[in-house]
Design a protein around this nucleic acid. Structure first.
Lengths: 144, 144
DNA sequence: CGTGTTGTAATTGAATCTGTTACAACACTA
DNA sequence: TAGTGTTGTAACAGATTCAATTACAACACG
């Protein structure tokens, strides 16, 4: 399956905000400017910012001179926070149709897999939790 | 996106084979029987078995009395082996369109994310590597 | 009241997944 | 040698998801 790129767009937006917001009057940037850096449509950005806003990672300002800014210092935003804000679905799906209830495997397997998948996803999130937006910005500027 | 259930179907098939093959003449089972336990179409099963066969996890027998059997003892097949056999795509996608090459974030971010995503996926696979098909079968029968 | 931006709904086109039908290839058996 | 049961694979349909886009109401400031 082609995975979604929401995580990537969200990290891009937050990293760009961490770099750019401090230089702007009011400390806010517009979805239009973020979209130009990501090279996509501003609505795509606003949709993803919606998830980040619900999680408190960004704050919106409306009216004249509107825009968005980070809701917390970039040192305190981990990639786990971002992942949970934009990818609510479990990583690996269970059966698409209920397996045979006549069969011990069909009955017993789903709960076992649920536990296994939860631990696997947890391990991935733990790794993501070790990296912050500030880290990503620093590495990004060092590479360029 | 709704993640694919290939991983789940593959584990179901292998677990069922570990349980059932020893009881059958020739030690093989048919995709039809596996499909009955998973509650799906035999072609879906054969498609997924194709990936498992390429990875050496199962072996096919053709002709009269045909079927499939495990290619290795279930104690030696980890869920990491299964994952890599059926999910070749990376877990988290990079940008769907090339980001702005005028912007240091657009230029520098993708390689940074590639590294981060690789480590995250590695952490997930490491967790999956700690569990074998034999473990899954044992837990499944214990639960039922 | 005009302006620029946000938030969100609706639509489009492409891609992917599951399920299905169809059929050639294969190897055993009678 | 013909019949049989299964595999492997191609092709297709329907559902779902994704990114991108258009459109527009809500908002708050000048």
């Amino acid at each position: 399956m082609a995975a979604s790129s929401r995580m990537t767009v969200a990290i891009h937006a937050l990293t760009w905000m961490a770099l750019t917001c401090p230089r702007r009057p009011g400390g806010v940037v517009t979805s239009d400017k973020i979209a130009a850096s990501v090279n996509t449509n501003p609505v795509v950005i606003r949709r993803i910012l919606g998830g980040l806003r619900e999680a408190g990672l960004v704050v919106s300002v409306r009216g004249q001179g509107a825009g968005v800014k980070l809701g917390r210092p970039p040192e305190s935003i981990t990639l786990k926070d971002v992942y949970e804000a934009v990818e609510p679905e479990p990583l690996i799906a269970l059966h698409s149709t209920l397996p045979s209830q006549e069969c011990p495997v069909g009955v017993g397997l789903p709960p076992v897999l649920q536990g296994v998948y939860g631990r696997a996803e947890g391990a991935m999130k733990e790794e993501l939790a070790t990296i912050t937006i500030a880290d990503v910005l620093k590495k990004t500027l060092a590479a360029a």
